[in-house]
Design a protein around this nucleic acid. Structure first.
Length: 436
RNA sequence: GUGGCUGUAGCGCAGUGGUAGCGCACAAGAUUGUGGCUCUUGGUGUCGCGGGUUCAAAUCCCGUCAGCCACCCCA
C-alpha cells in the first residue's frame, strides 16, 4: 500500500450495520408519507447555481460561502461557459424548479411531494454537521395550499414523523414573518431603529444590517442580543398586517386543535430568504450546538419568483444524521438471522452441499456456508454468529448413508433427512420459520 | 471561515525520552463430529502523515491531514 486514499472531508461511510438503521428510517418515513398522501419526487443532486442563488438567497451564508461548485465541465457545458453548476445545498429549490418545469400545477391544485436524499454544503465539519448530509423533506405546493390548516397539517406531519422515528424529546418553535410586504416593511423599521446602534453590533450583524436585517434578531452574540432586547417593539408583531396576524392565529388554533405543543418564538428567523408567514423549527437540546433536527415554513412567493405560476407552498426538512444521533439506536439488533447454515465436513461432499445451498436460496430460504470449510467447531460458531435457525450438516456418516442432518439451533434437537428429500427439508425449515 | 482539544490493534483506551500494552472483538484448542458459557494459547500495529531535535521519539519541536468542542451557520 503506497498511498491510501481516505474519504473526503465531511463525508461518511455508512457501513452495513448502520445501513440497517437508515433503511428502517427510510421505510418508516415512506409509510408515514403514504398515510398523509405524499408522493416521492427525485431530482438531480446538482442544478444550475443560479437556481439556488435565486431561491435560497444571494445574501444567505449557504449561497455565499457553502455552495459546492462543480468544476468539471461536461461537453455541453464547454460550449457555454456561463452556466455554472452546484451540488444542491437543500431540497426545496430543486423541487420548485421541477414543479414549474413539469407543469405540475396543471395536474392538480395541490402537489404533496416528499424526498429523501443527500445534500451538500462546504461547511467545516462537526458532529451533526457534514458536507454531505441527508434530509427527509416534504413540500406541499399549489393554489390549494393557501390554507392555515395546511401549515398546521405539515407541522403535525413533521411532529408525527419525528415521533415515529423514535424521537420524543424535541421542542417545536414557531413564528410568523408575514407576507413579503410585511417582511419588507419590518426590515425598514428595524433598520431605522438600529441605525444609531450599528457600532454596538458584532461584525457579522453589521454585515447583516445591509444584507438581511432580520437575521440580527436571532444572533446569539451577547451584545447584539441586548441591543435587540432594547428595541422591544417586535414582540407585539406591530409590523404585521391584520391579515397576516389573522393567518398566524388560525395556524395556532389548528395546532391547538391537533394537540400539538409548540413554543412561540418571535425571534425565530430562518436563514433562507424564501420564507414568508409561518416558520418553524424542531430542536433537540441533547445534540449540543447542532441542535436543529428539522425546520421549515411557508414560501408563498418562491414559485412565482422562479418564473412559475402563482402557487403558495409549505414544507420542511429533517436532518437524518441528526435524528440518528438523537435516537442512538444499535443497528446490530436489526440484523435478521439466516434460515439455515450449511456445514460440510468432507471434501468429497462439498459439491453436493454447494448445490444444496443454491437450491435453498432459489426457494427463498436464506442460507450460507463457508466455501472453505474448517473444523466442525468453527463452522458451528459461524452458524451461531450468523444467527442461523437451522444447521444442515454433511459429514462422513451422512455422506455414506446419502443423508443430511438438520439441526434446530433454538431447540437443540436434530434429525436426519435423505439428501434427495429436498422438499421435506425446505418445508421443515419453513414451518419453523413461520412459528417465530 | 475563527479559536481550542485530540489522533496508539477492528472498536474503546493506557503508555510523557530507552524500541508498545490492557479490555472487548478475532483465531486455534480444552478425549478423535456439534454453536452460545468458562478456561488456555496466539497475534492483531505505517503509534494519523511528513520533517526536525537526540546515541535513542508513540513520547519533545515544527508542519500537515482528519475528527471533536465552542463560535459561525444550519438539517
Amino acid at each position: 500500500m503506497d498511498q491510501f486514499i481516505s474519504l473526503p472531508r465531511g463525508t461518511a461511510d455508512i457501513l452495513p450495520e448502520e445501513a440497517l438503521l437508515w433503511q428502517a428510517m427510510e421505510s418508516q418515513a415512506r409509510t408515514v408519507f403514504g398515510v398523509y398522501g405524499y408522493q416521492e419526487i427525485r431530482t438531480p443532486f446538482f442544478e444550475e447555481t443560479d437556481l439556488f442563488a435565486r431561491s435560497v438567497g444571494q445574501t444567505s451564508d449557504i449561497v455565499q460561502k457553502q455552495m459546492l461548485n462543480l468544476a468539471a465541465q461536461t461537453e455541453a457545458q464547454e460550449n457555454d461557459k456561463s452556466t455554472s453548476l452546484s451540488l444542491r445545498p437543500e431540497g426545496t429549490a430543486s423541487i420548485v424548479r421541477s414543479y414549474i418545469q413539469n407543469r405540475l400545477d396543471k395536474k392538480e391544485k395541490l402537489s404533496k411531494l416528499f424526498y429523501i436524499g443527500p445534500m451538500f454544503r462546504g461547511e467545516r465539519p462537526q458532529k451533526g454537521r457534514l458536507r454531505q448530509f441527508h434530509q427527509i423533506g416534504v413540500e406541499a405546493i399549489g393554489p390549494d395550499s393557501a390554507s392555515p390548516f395546511l401549515d398546521a397539517e405539515v407541522i403535525a406531519l413533521g411532529t408525527n414523523l419525528l415521533k415515529q422515528l423514535g424521537l420524543n424529546d424535541f421542542v417545536l418553535r414557531i413564528n410568523t414573518l408575514g407576507t413579503l410586504e410585511d417582511k419588507g416593511a419590518f426590515s425598514g423599521i428595524l433598520k431605522d431603529s438600529l441605525q444609531d446602534k450599528i457600532r454596538n453590533l458584532c461584525p457579522d450583524c453589521q454585515n447583516r444590517y445591509d444584507r438581511n436585517v432580520l437575521r440580527v434578531l436571532d444572533c446569539k452574540n451577547k451584545e447584539c442580543r441586548s441591543v435587540v432586547e432594547g428595541l422591544n417593539f417586535w414582540r407585539n408583531c406591530e409590523y404585521l398586517s391584520p391579515k397576516s396576524k389573522e393567518y398566524f392565529e388560525a395556524v395556532k388554533k389548528a395546532l391547538d386543535a391537533l394537540e400539538i405543543t409548540y413554543v412561540e418564538d418571535p425571534k425565530l428567523v430562518r436563514g433562507l430568504d424564501y420564507y414568508t408567514h409561518t416558520v418553524f423549527e424542531f430542536s433537540c437540546q441533547r445534540l449540543g450546538s447542532q441542535d436543529a433536527v428539522g425546520a421549515g415554513g411557508r414560501y408563498n412567493n418562491l414559485v412565482e419568483q422562479l418564473g412559475g405560476p402563482v402557487a403558495d407552498a409549505v414544507g420542511f426538512a429533517l436532518g437524518m444524521e441528526r435524528i440518528l444521533l438523537a435516537t442512538a439506536k444499535e443497528g446490530a439488533e436489526l440484523q435478521a438471522g439466516l434460515d439455515a447454515f450449511v456445514v460440510c465436513l468432507q471434501e468429497e461432499g462439498l459439491l453436493k452441499v454447494f448445490k444444496l445451498l443454491q437450491d435453498l436460496r432459489a426457494r427463498g430460504v436464506s442460507a450460507d456456508m463457508n466455501l472453505r470449510p474448517g473444523s466442525m467447531k468453527s463452522q458451528m460458531r459461524q452458524a451461531d454468529k450468523a444467527k442461523a435457525r437451522f444447521v444442515l450438516i454433511l459429514g462422513e456418516e451422512e455422506l455414506k448413508a446419502g443423508e443430511v442432518t438438520l439441526k434446530d439451533m433454538k431447540q437443540g434437537v436434530q434429525e436426519k433427512f435423505r439428501l434427495g428429500a429436498f422438499e421435506e427439508i425446505v418445508s421443515k425449515i419453513r414451518s419453523n420459520k413461520s412459528e417465530n
